[in-house]
Amino acid sequence: MESFIHIIILSMLVTTAVAIVRVKDLFAVTMLAGIYGLLSASFFVLMDAHDVAFTEAAVGAGISTILILTTLSMTGRFEKAAENPKSNYKPALALALVTVTGALLIYGTQDMPAFGAADAPVQTHVVPRYLNDSATEIDIPNVVASVLASYRGYDTFGEVVVIFTAGIGVLALIMSTASKAPVALRASMEEHVVLRIVSKMLIPLIMIFGLYVQFHGEYGPGGGFQAGVIFASAFFLYAMLFGLTAARKVVNNTWIQALAALGVLLYGSVGVLAMINGGNFLDYNFLAQDDVHGQHMGILFVELGVGITVASVMIIIFFTFSTRKQRDGEPD
């Protein structure tokens, strides 16, 4: 029965991918990409990877769809390359490249162990240690959170830095020209009374849910990445319905940029604090009087740092894109 559902979802994924390639309307492509994300999330749930599914649903289906839509409102809705004879539009070349890469990947799977095989490296290498010792060493129910935030703390630190760098990159590319006088945004949704009222009801709920995901990450699926994205989406909703000018009053530009850096700083400081107390970088055992307490504190602060950075960077990217669009004065 389960493999039946697997086959259905995987074939829907393939169908969506083909549709993404075939459809010319980029708006529809964005929506299809969101559907693709949601389908992948369902597939991850079937594979019992709830944390990954949660991230995919929040990032793949949620925030990236919104960000791409914002970009589309700047660049236009239809592909232009195909009509321009001078462009380097060579679909056959791209198709050949994709086919070769896909064939190599499929060839590569020949050497991989079967899914769920007992002697696969993933079952024999470090995972048994994590699964066996997480309960005594870290003592939180969600092993994914303990692997992500404690055992693999360096990797997660790297990921946060990557997100922070992305935020800086967007700012460096776009912000420099957009910092001039904030144009009063025509409240494009002014007449949408129903949307405004419902969103006013939903925004607090979204924020509370974001905080729940943030601080419940040790006990169930969730954590800083998902929470940051959910928290940021509340601001997106507000900015879309009440206009950028109103949203800018809520979110101060300087503060939000400082917060993005603060999250990374908080993460790094936890590591340095562990070093000051005599341990290795990000060795939470040295943070408190006993090991388990230290692990709990370390994971809490590290996840908070992740959440702050992710939320701030998402808000920065969205606001920068929207401001740019508003400045260019392009119609919706």
Binding site: H192, L195, V198, L202
Partner: peptide, 16 residues
Amino acid sequence: VFVLLTGPTAGHALAK
């Protein structure tokens, strides 16, 4: 509650 809030609103927004 969430579905009852968002579903009709999304429909309304689409139609509008």
